[in-house]
């Protein structure tokens, strides 16, 4: 388990102190994939670097695997780091070493014998799907392959925690998904805890169990990914959620609708879990004597079930429309009347 208690990190800069992490309390369970999302400069990297002691907190406590990381140093800290490994946005591989030599590096650091190293490297190369590239140098690999080397290297000493600092931010969308799938399979196969930071809600949606939203050094919202998607509270969280639920042209089409049909109700429906699979709309039309025009729809699968939004225009008697909305409510589908495109 990972625990942060009243953690503050201040940096001394030319114009006074800068508080990068501001009184953060957080606990992350064993075996979960925990995401931290925030814009650039929010303090995410600083926070994740506190977890392996690359930074020391100005005050507060950081506990990982039962060890007070903020208090240990020297050999004790170095040994702790064998079990808390890290992958990076720009991979940070040694260009002077081949794939297999890069993966062997943490094993050399841990003092593993040569024969043992070779055996372990082979397993890891297999695990991350890099067979045949053992003798390549990083400069001969694609971004996705480089990150696979980074992951293999991070797993070499059987860590209990894997820290990912924007691990997919330098990759194209398809490669991002492949790397995220790899992280999930590692999490399931090896049972290690993954803490990842990102500025993309897509990453959180796709693989995280829980999420914390960071803004100006503080955690402004946290919870189950599905819950946060369903009812984001902080304004910044709502923005992140709309990153994945709204497509290009979404706002334009809504404002067009509002303009063209000022008398009809435009309603946004939220479906969660199994509700996404029920034929609610056809029941609505059949039972309430209304017409339903679909304006926009979207389903996002998350780690704890699918989550969908549907924007519809309901046409009919005011009375019937009100009843229809009531019916949705009874069905457990949240609805929201849209009055403007924001």
């Amino acid at each position: 388990m990972i625990q942060l208690e009243n953690v503050v990190k201040k940096y001394k800069t030319a114009n006074g102190y800068l508080t990068a992490v501001n009184d953060v309390n957080l606990s992350i369970n064993d075996g979960e994939i925990f995401g931290i999302i925030g814009y650039s400069g929010a303090g995410k990297s600083t926070m994740i670097r506190l977890l392996n002691g690359l930074e020391k907190p100005t005050s507060g406590k950081v506990i990982v695997n039962g060890q007070n990381i903020s208090a240990i140093r020297g050999k004790e800290l170095r040994n702790a780091r064998h079990k808390i490994s890290m992958i990076f946005q720009h991979f940070n591989l040694l260009w002077s070493r081949t794939v297999e030599e890069n993966i062997a590096f943490p094993l050399e650091i841990a003092g593993i014998s040569k024969a043992e190293r070779q055996k372990r490297v082979l397993e890891l190369i297999e695990l991350v799907g890099l067979k045949g590239r053992e003798k390549s140098y990083p400069s001969q690999l694609s971004g996705g392959q480089k990150q696979r080397v980074g992951i293999a290297r991070a797993l070499a000493n059987d860590p209990e925690v894997l820290l990912c600092d924007e691990a997919t931010s330098a990759l194209d969308p398809e490669t991002t998904d492949a790397i995220l799938d790899l992280l999930v399979s590692i999490n399931e196969k090896l049972g290690l805890t993954i803490v990842l930071i990102t500025h993309e809600m897509h990453v959180i949606r796709k693989i995280c169990h829980r999420v914390a939203v960071m803004e100006a050094g503080k955690i402004v919202e946290r919870g189950n990914v599905l819950e946060v998607f369903q009812s984001p509270k902080a304004e910044i969280t709502q923005k992140f959620v709309s990153q994945v639920t709204e497509t290009a042209g979404h706002k334009e089409s809504i404002s067009q609708m509002l303009e063209d049909y000022p008398n009809d109700q435009l309603i946004k429906l939220f479906f969660v879990g199994s509700k996404t699979e029920q034929p609610v709309i056809s029941q609505l039309i059949r039972e309430f004597n209304v017409d339903v025009n679909i304006v926009h729809g979207n389903i996002s699968p998350t780690k704890s079930g699918p989550y969908g939004t549907l924007i519809v225009r309901i046409v009919g008697d005011t009375d019937h429309v009100a009843k229809a909305i009531q019916y949705l409510d009874v069905q457990g589908i949240k609805s929201e009347v849209i009055n403007n495109a924001e």
Partner: peptide
């Protein structure tokens, strides 16, 4: 970032000199 990666793996400064700084 490469030096930082070595530190995150628990490398000693001596190891960083021999296995990172000089080869790289």
């Amino acid at each position: 970032g490469v030096i930082e990666a070595a530190r995150s793996m628990g490398a000693k400064t001596w190891t960083i000199i021999w296995k990172v700084l000089i080869p790289e």
